[in-house]
Design a protein around this nucleic acid. Structure first.
Lengths: 343, 343
DNA sequence: ACAATTTCTCAAAACGCTTTGGGCGCTAAC
DNA sequence: GTTAGCGCCCAAAGCGTTTTGAGAAATTGT
């Protein structure tokens, strides 16, 4: 708690009004006084009290992020750290605070209600939307500006979102494998309660069907995206009577596991078996160095965070009217984990 | 923004004073009226405005976390997500908000100053302390309650912290390897600007020296903890004239990379070469299933988050006087990545 | 039955800021 | 030389709470 506006004003022998105006760039104050005020403020380390300012202006200058923690499988989405980092950059630049609420998903709606009712935030970011997600309807009804990182289905009302083109990315990746001669392509997906996973599966299925290839349920698997899951998937699938010759997966971590499972079986990636992964470009999960290890559909989640936050700020400050949407395309980067099918 | 206290009072035909007291559990209000007020408040979905409450009480009911983003190598610490999740649990339980500030590390001090001066938070959590870290001195001087996740050296004044016994963990792990007959043990450490990395190195070195083993600089390496780093370390070290027979590393991700590097060279973990890793028990980086894959020094960072937050709340609410400290021991769990040295 | 308590309730001030609605002293205009 | 206009500044109200200091009503004591 530093110095107060009143104190600063007293020290300058000015009224609080004038000091406030001088600092907030209002025109009706003499340029000389403004300089004097600004200098004094800087020297005294004066920063306006957030709460008082918020009370007076009716705005919190803060954005809320609610991080759902699945009650059944308590996994924190690894995406989250980089997205937050990106969003945080945008908020600081704009002078906004970020308030985080980590809650079990059965208490999630209350968390949103509370954040809004208490006036703690001016806007909300919705993370990890499920395929059927009631949060969008709830927030629309509550009338608080919000932005979804991803999308959700079966929502009638328009809403703001930023998503990557998951379907297209996985469609292209599948086509790429098909062009290399692969016919039995496995999909090791994330949890299919999540919207992004459904879209990825759709992309995979369209490409397969367009190429006249059968969809074998034995080649599709979905679970929480971890390394051991990838390992098990590889091991089990390769022991099938007619094993896949290529894998498509949703995360670097799963790809690590796949690679280990395949290598354990004496297979070489890019030769006997191909792997394409989605790469969120997480700072702590680099896909090799300059030249990518895995062939991947890549899209920076950090950048997504930056963009989504900026869009939300546009809405919150009234510079743009919702709904704002942004569909980012993922790049298909070719690494050494894919190769032409060999008999 | 929901209903206001004044409105609620008017609807009940009571004064704001009485309503406030009824809701906050003050004794000087009739039990019958209290019931009436509470019911009405619940029905109207009344929640006190955070800012107004804060202004009146002089407390923000919020804790700040400043996440440093190294300007040189922009890696978000993967630890961070689970720690935040744990801390978040504690805060919600106590009715506190968490405000996050993601800043480049050259703007970090300003972030702390600002959070405090603007009265946005009642307390601060310090992440990822460096070996020499000016933040502790700064915060002590600013007089805001704070808690460090980890420790820092060469600080004269006492401060509150929660840390795991990094030195002891790595000492025990090294001893364990020595008992298995290993003499050439490599340390693949995190960045040694970080305090935890120094302590781990100390633990390793004490155990080596106590056993009369030479410290070979060629067997020690430190960098950002990623999978590719582990891979390179394994490959390069095993190509040395006298390669190590065991590895000790600071992170699951590095361990993944080590394993790949070693397996690529035709070595089997737990047979030709041993690996012990530190396992932060991150939800998305499980060390196998029920039976651990890697032998590891394990300590849940999620749990650390919960504890650290609770301790900070004790200080902030005045229930305890700083400094509060907590040293958690890591468990040494035995997996299949270690084995007796064979000639 | 009257004073002394105790119970319950309220009006008003305070928290630190922004914003509204003047007001004072100049200069420009007629 | 009055009026109008402008530039600069201020007092006071208001934001939604909590908290202080009192007061009315009900209860107790004698």
């Amino acid at each position: 708690m530093g110095i107060t506006l009143k104190e600063l004003a007293a020290a300058l022998d000015l009224s609080p009004t004038t000091v406030s105006r001088a600092l907030n760039g209002y025109p009706e104050v003499n340029e000389a006084t403004r300089q004097r005020v600004q200098l004094a403020a800087r020297k005294a380390g004066y920063q306006p009290n957030t709460r008082a300012k918020g009370l007076a202006t009716g705005r919190a200058h803060a954005i809320g992020h609610v991080i759902p923690l699945s009650t059944s499988h308590e996994i924190v989405n690894p995406i989250f750290a980089d997205f937050i980092a990106g969003a945080g950059e945008s908020y600081s630049r704009a002078g906004y605070d970020m308030v985080l609420s980590v809650v079990a998903d059965d208490a999630e709606e209350d968390a949103y209600r509370s954040l809004i009712a208490r006036g703690t935030v001016d806007g909300l970011m919705v993370h990890a939307p499920r395929h059927h997600d009631s949060r969008v309807a709830l927030l629309s009804e509550l009338g608080c500006p919000f932005m979804v990182h991803g999308r959700t289905s079966e929502v009638t009302s328009p809403y703001s979102w930023l998503d990557i083109n998951n379907k297209r990315a996985f469609q292209r990746a599948t086509e790429f494998l098909i062009e290399l001669g692969h016919k039995r392509i496995a999909l090791i997906n994330g949890l299919e309660t999540m919207d992004f996973a459904i879209r990825r599966r759709n992309g995979y299925e369209s490409a397969m069907q367009a190429a006249g290839l059968a969809l074998d349920p034995a080649l599709i698997r979905s679970a929480e995206m971890t390394e051991p899951f990838g390992y098990r998937a590889a091991q089990e699938m390769m022991r099938q009577p007619v094993p896949p010759t290529a894998f498509l997966t949703s995360s670097m971590l799963v790809a690590y596991g796949l690679r280990r499972g395949l290598v354990d079986l004496g297979l070489t990636l890019g030769r006997e078996v191909s792997v394409i992964t989605h790469d969120d470009d997480l700072s702590y999960l680099p896909n090799g160095g300059d030249v990518p290890l895995f062939t991947a559909t890549r899209s920076s989640v950090r950048e997504a965070g930056r963009k989504a936050a900026n869009m939300l700020l546009e809405v919150v400050t009234g510079r743009a009217a919702p709904p704002l949407t942004c569909l980012m395309e993922a790049a298909l980067v070719v690494g050494s984990s894919t190769g032409r099918l060999r008999q």
